[in-house]
Deep mutational scan, measured.
Amino acid sequence: SSEEQMCGTHRETKKIFCEVDRSLLCLLCSSSQEHRYHRHRPIEWAA
């Protein structure tokens, strides 16, 4: 659903897949302290 594609923290669309956590992130989350050094892919890659 579209609600699942929205970041609850930043209200941004989740467009990035974190390979380490195997989760979807928004651009702001992907550059956060928690995920900054993880490997990321565009969401299309994970589909």
Results as ranks from 00 to 15, higher is better:
Glu34Trp: 00
Phe17Val: 07
Arg41Trp: 06
Glu19Phe: 00
Glu12Val: 11
Lys15Glu: 13
Ser23Phe: 00
Ser31Val: 10
Ser1Glu: 13
Ile43Thr: 04
Ser23Arg: 13
Pro42Cys: 12
Lys15Pro: 01
His10Phe: 00
Val20Leu: 06
Cys26Tyr: 00
Leu28Glu: 15
Ala47Phe: 02
Asp21Phe: 04
Cys7Phe: 00
Gln33Tyr: 14
Gly8Thr: 12
Cys18Tyr: 01
Ser30Val: 08
Arg41Lys: 06
His10Leu: 08
Cys18Thr: 05
Gly8Val: 12
Ser30Asn: 04
Gln5Phe: 06
His35Met: 00
Arg41Met: 06
His35Trp: 01
Gln33Ser: 10
Glu3Leu: 09
Asp21Lys: 13
Trp45Gln: 15
Ala46Tyr: 09
Asp21Trp: 09
Gln33Ala: 10
Asp21Ala: 08
Ala47Gly: 11
His38Gly: 01
Arg41His: 05
Lys15Asp: 04
Cys7Tyr: 01
Cys29Arg: 00
Arg11Lys: 13
Ser1Val: 10
Val20Trp: 10
Leu24Glu: 11
Tyr37Glu: 14
Ser2Ala: 09
Met6Leu: 10
Arg11Ala: 10
Glu12Asn: 01
Met6Lys: 04
Tyr37Gly: 14
Glu4Gly: 02
Ser30His: 04
His10Trp: 00
Thr13Ala: 14
Tyr37Cys: 12
Asp21Ser: 12
His38Ser: 02
Gln33Leu: 12
Arg22Ser: 10
Ser31Ile: 11
Leu25Val: 14
Lys14Glu: 09
Ser31Arg: 12
Pro42Leu: 07
Lys15Thr: 10
Ala46Glu: 11
Pro42Phe: 08
Ser2Gln: 06
Cys7Pro: 03
Tyr37Thr: 13
His35Asn: 02
His35Lys: 00
Gln5Leu: 12
Gly8Ala: 13
Glu44His: 02
Glu12Ser: 11
Arg36Gln: 09
Ser1Gly: 04
Cys7Met: 02
Arg39Thr: 13
His10Ala: 03
Arg36Ser: 09
Leu27Cys: 15
Cys29Tyr: 00
Tyr37Asn: 15
Ser23Ile: 12
Cys29Val: 00
His40Phe: 02
Thr13Val: 12
Leu28Ile: 15
Glu19Lys: 03
Tyr37Gln: 14
Leu28Arg: 11
Leu27Arg: 14
Lys14Pro: 05
Lys15Arg: 06
Val20Met: 12
Glu34Ala: 12
Thr13Gln: 14
Arg39Phe: 07
Met6Asp: 01
Ala46Val: 09
Cys7Val: 02
Gln33Ile: 15
Glu34Gln: 06
Ala46Trp: 10
Leu28Tyr: 13
Asp21Gln: 14
Ala47Ser: 04
Cys26Asp: 10
Val20Gly: 05
Leu25Thr: 03
Glu4Cys: 03
Glu44Leu: 04
Lys15His: 01
Thr13Arg: 10
Cys18Val: 00
His35Phe: 02
